[in-house]
Amino acid sequence: MTLRLDGISAGYGPVQVLFDLSLEARPGEVLCLLGRNGAGKTTTLKAIMGLLPLMSGRVLLGAAELSAMPAHEVPKHGIGYIPQGRRLFTELTVAENIEVGLLARGRGAETREKVLTMFPRLRERLSQRAETLSGGEQQMLATARALCLEPEVLLLDEPTEGLQPSMISLIRDTVDVMRDAGVAIILVEQRIEAVLNLADRVAFIENGHGREVVDVEVLRRDKALLQKYVGI
């Protein structure tokens, strides 16, 4: 299903960060949000999840208006979120983190098995507390936890941050698998190389305002937009 942001404005308390932002993430594509630090990329993901109240506008998944629901209902519609810094439940075990992922949606043991097959290393660490995992394993767990929702839309906030190349490659493979499965993916990523490898389309955000949305091919040919909105 297509996720649509229809002129959303949001912020933290009285401080407005997003201004009338409209975007669309289609099934089976990776839409990358690009912009400088503080442009509003993470805020956009939080607003989609309902973790920030909207000042105006709507978030729609197909015909369902996510922004009219309480925040805890949003994941039940298949919106998986992998936040920046992973935000695992650090004192819970790997098995318990996965269990939390299965609470809202998914098909219990079947989904759990599927996810553990994708990340076999987690199967060896099920009884280990999340805080004792390496950075790469923590990212695997954060991804596995979100995939437990059997998502139709996946929001990834800087998933390759601080990871070694082998882990980045694993994340890329996972994104490819999800895209092939028809999941709409919104990716916030600072590493341009990762953006050019993973994204189908790129949406630029500047000071909370939506700017150009272009196919990644355009960026590969012409880096002027990167210079304009990201300063690279």
Binding site: M49, G50, L51, P70, A71, H72, E73, V74, P75, K76, Y81, P83, R87, F89, T90, E91, L92, E96, E99, V100, G101, L103, A104, R105, R145, L149
Partner: peptide, 24 residues
């Protein structure tokens, strides 16, 4: 128990608990 797990998850990170469908 499952309710215990929900309570512990909420204790650790209220926002992420919400993002995983827990009615905080």
């Amino acid at each position: 128990s499952r309710i215990g797990l929900v309570m512990r998850a909420t204790q650790l990170d209220r926002e992420m608990a919400t993002a995983f469908g827990i009615p905080v």
